[in-house]
Design a protein around this nucleic acid. Structure first.
Lengths: 142, 142
DNA sequence: TATTGTTATACTCTATAACTATA
DNA sequence: TATAGTTATAGAGTATAACAATA
């Protein structure tokens, strides 16, 4: 196979990411959760109740921005805020029954177009994608 | 190697993409070009002068949105608009000298944090990333 | 009638700044 | 003094709607 120049490959990757970002945003308009909202539900599902500040740190966002996201999820009835037992400043965010159901639906790969699309790729392409995901995470955290 | 459940891998990939999107946006604030602006410059560099409507189709955006992007690039002196020789409705967007210089700088992988970061990965990781880029583009266009 | 482009307006996501309450 | 959270405001990126000019 003939190798492309490095810059061409980077340009193509950048373009793919750009298209994907807009595709994700478009899906959001279609009554799906936003990327950040999905990420928050997944975190709460995996790690149990967390505070807004903790969620912000995990997702590399400002606490005020995460506050808005959590507020939207709360308004949608997917999460609830309860006072921290010992620290009066903190509010613990946790999944509601409806939020937990939403997560299960996502895991079925039926409700999220991206999970659904990935599930239709062959095994090797899925492996490539997941491996790239880990590399991209390292890049993002740099 | 122990395989993770599919849903876990999808969740991790989604999280990586989310972090990356925010990282790209943060870089934009630091006087770098936005992702879309970079994509437009790359297109014009590769394919020569194009109209706003053509650029919009290529990038899966509405012509009005692309008009704003092109307007920003024009204000920055990176592109110019010239009347189409035969079709009075169209304006051809092309790189200015300054815009062409900007593209060369990007190709040096010094000005763009993402190109720079990728250049520091080992060859195999770069291959994985570029292969994933092609898969992601297919997903985005679905 | 279809297409190119412009202008006006609005929405989402995230940021900064200023504040209160608690530790 | 530091941390958790809220509220107000702003900016970037994109969308929809309504319009003018040209094909």
């Amino acid at each position: 196979m003939s190798r492309k120049p490095f810059e061409t490959s980077v340009a193509e990757l950048t373009q793919s990411l750009g298209l994907l970002i807009r595709r994700v945003r478009a899906a959001t308009d279609n009554h799906e959760l936003s990327l950040t909202e999905s990420m928050v539900l997944a975190r709460l599902d995996q790690q149990g109740p967390l505070t807004t500040a903790e969620l912000a740190r995990i997702e590399s966002m400002k606490p005020q921005s995460m506050g808005a996201t959590v507020g939207a999820l709360e308004e949608a009835g997917l999460v609830q805020r309860t006072p921290h037992p010992t620290d009066g400043r903190q509010l613990l965010v946790s999944l509601t029954t409806k939020g937990a159901e939403m997560r299960r639906a996502f895991k079925d790969a039926k409700r999220s177009w991206i999970a659904n699309a990935i599930s239709q790729l062959d095994k090797q392409e899925q492996e490539t994608l997941f491996a790239a995901g880990e590399i991209l995470r390292r890049l993002a955290e740099q």
